[in-house]
Each structure stands twice: as C-alpha cells, then as structure tokens.
C-alpha cells in the first residue's frame, strides 16, 4: 500500500510506518532547503539530536523528519533560513 505526503510542490509516496526522512530520502530529496541559506536543512544524525532535518508542518509546530512518521496527506516544507546578523 502506498500513500503520499507533500514536500513543497512535490508528491512523495511513503510506506506506512516510515518516517518523513525515509520517505524523502527514497524520493531522492536530500536538500531540505531553504535555498541559499548558509545552513540548509538535511537529514543528518537520524536520532533527533541535531535538529537539521526539522521541517515546517501545515497547521502545527515543526517536527524532526527523522523521528516523525509520515501521515497520508501531510504537507511539509522548509524552515526559515538562519542568517548571521550584520555585526
């Protein structure tokens, strides 16, 4: 059985029981954006510690892609970029 989540404008299929990180990885989505920022999102430590794979979620607080199971119809996207202040 295949179901799907939405990464920005992409449809990403997943298998029930799979994390968001696993689904994105299998779809070849490595860059979790945002483009151009000095520190873009990406799956890194796989255990929720580094927070690099945190994704924005429609209608709630952001979650770690590596800890959170994909749910059918879930809409996710990039977090705001980290910008170094101008001092």
């Amino acid at each position: 059985m295949m179901t799907r989540i939405f990464w920005n404008d992409y449809v990403v299929p997943f298998r029930p029981g799979e994390t968001i990180a696993a689904a994105l990885g299998r779809a070849g989505i490595i860059n979790l954006g945002p483009a151009g920022g000095p520190a873009r999102g990406r799956v890194f430590c796989g255990i929720g510690a580094c927070q690099a794979c945190v994704v924005a979620i429609e209608g709630g607080a952001p979650v770690e892609a590596c800890l959170t199971l994909a749910r059918d119809g879930l809409r996710i996207g990039s977090m705001p970029a980290v910008v170094v202040s101008d001092e």
Binding site: G25, I30, R40, R42, I47, C50
Partner: peptide
C-alpha cells in the same frame, strides 16, 4: 553542513529501518 552529508550512524539507522541504501 551541506545536504548530502550525514552521520554514518544516522545513515545506518535509516538503513536498518528501510532496508534500502541511499542511491
């Protein structure tokens, strides 16, 4: 910090979960 770089342990955990290596 680039996308595509991840920890070996993190990759191992993902591999154990999915059984499928990155392409």
């Amino acid at each position: 910090d680039l996308p595509g770089v991840m920890t070996a342990g993190g990759a191992q955990v993902l591999l154990k979960e999915t059984g499928v290596p990155p392409t």
